[in-house]
Amino acid sequence: MRRLVAFGALAVALTACGNPDQQAGRSTVPVAPGSGSGTTAAAPPAPTPASTPAASTPQASGRCTAAVLAAEVQPGDSGAGNRYAKLVVTNNGPAPCTLSGYSGLQLLDASGQPVPTDLQRTPDPGPAPVVVPPKARAAANLHWTVVPTDAEPVDGPCQPEAARARAIPPDDTQPMSLEWGLGPVCGGGRIEISAFYAA
């Protein structure tokens, strides 16, 4: 009987001295390393920066037209029956414009009627784009003779004298009006003209 009592007391003592973790209410399940709440999540990949758009190319200058140009003839040197002048145009528009090529030209009398004009293009200088900023100028060289040719009279004007002229910019259809007043143009009204260049 004493042995049974002693065995029961020993069993109670062993139960009371269980695992210290269980006594404290702590789990004995091992925790995988790195799975705790203090672990920092990996940062998301940085967004790819958007491609920078290429700088816009300035638009090419528009064509110079009679709407923005003012024209005049500036006399040059003369001698041995030859006359020289320049057809000068000024850009009165708000933006640069481009001239490329030859002007048209028609001589007129005081009443606005056509006077014989035979315009001949020369290659010096030849056609090349000329950007004309606002208030800037471009010019074309003019050359003609005052010596009568063929059946033209020699005892008076070889041709009717022009008072005015109409000039048409390259690739345009509208004319510019300008004063002439530089005497008759002999040789049937033959005038040599160069392409426009910066003046």
Rank of each mutant, 00 (worst) to 15 (best):
R137S: 14
G104C: 11
D109F: 02
Q113I: 01
R2T: 07
G76H: 03
A80F: 13
A60N: 10
A43M: 13
F7R: 14
M176Y: 08
G112E: 03
I193R: 00
G181S: 01
G25F: 08
L4E: 13
P153S: 06
T90M: 04
R137H: 14
G104S: 07
E152H: 10
K135I: 08
P160S: 05
A140M: 00
N82L: 13
V154K: 15
T90V: 09
P20F: 07
T39R: 14
A140E: 00
A54I: 05
G25R: 12
P127G: 03
L182D: 00
A67F: 13
P114K: 04
A195K: 00
V130E: 01
I191F: 02
K135P: 03
P45N: 13
T145N: 14
Q159E: 14
P49Y: 10
S51Q: 14
V5H: 12
G8W: 08
A70W: 03
A165V: 00
V115C: 03
Q120A: 14
L105P: 00
T28W: 12
G62S: 15
S51L: 14
A60Y: 07
T98R: 03
A66R: 12
H143S: 15
C17P: 04
G36P: 05
Q120E: 15
P160Y: 04
P96W: 01
M176I: 11
C97G: 10
L119Q: 09
R63W: 15
L4C: 09
L4I: 11
T173V: 07
P129Y: 07
L69G: 02
A46Y: 07
A41Q: 08
P47F: 05
A9S: 09
I191Y: 01
A151I: 09
Q120W: 04
R190F: 02
T98P: 02
P96G: 04
T28L: 11
G76I: 11
S56Y: 05
A80R: 13
G183C: 00
A16T: 08
E161S: 10
A198S: 12
P58N: 08
G18V: 04
P75T: 07
V68S: 13
A54T: 12
E72R: 14
T52M: 10
R164E: 02
G36L: 10
V12G: 07
S61T: 12
V147M: 11
A195E: 02
A24Y: 12
Q174T: 10
I168E: 00
I168M: 00
S61G: 15
L4T: 12
P20K: 05
V131Q: 11
L182H: 00
G189T: 09
G81K: 15
A13P: 01
A46D: 05
V29M: 14
A67R: 12
T40V: 11
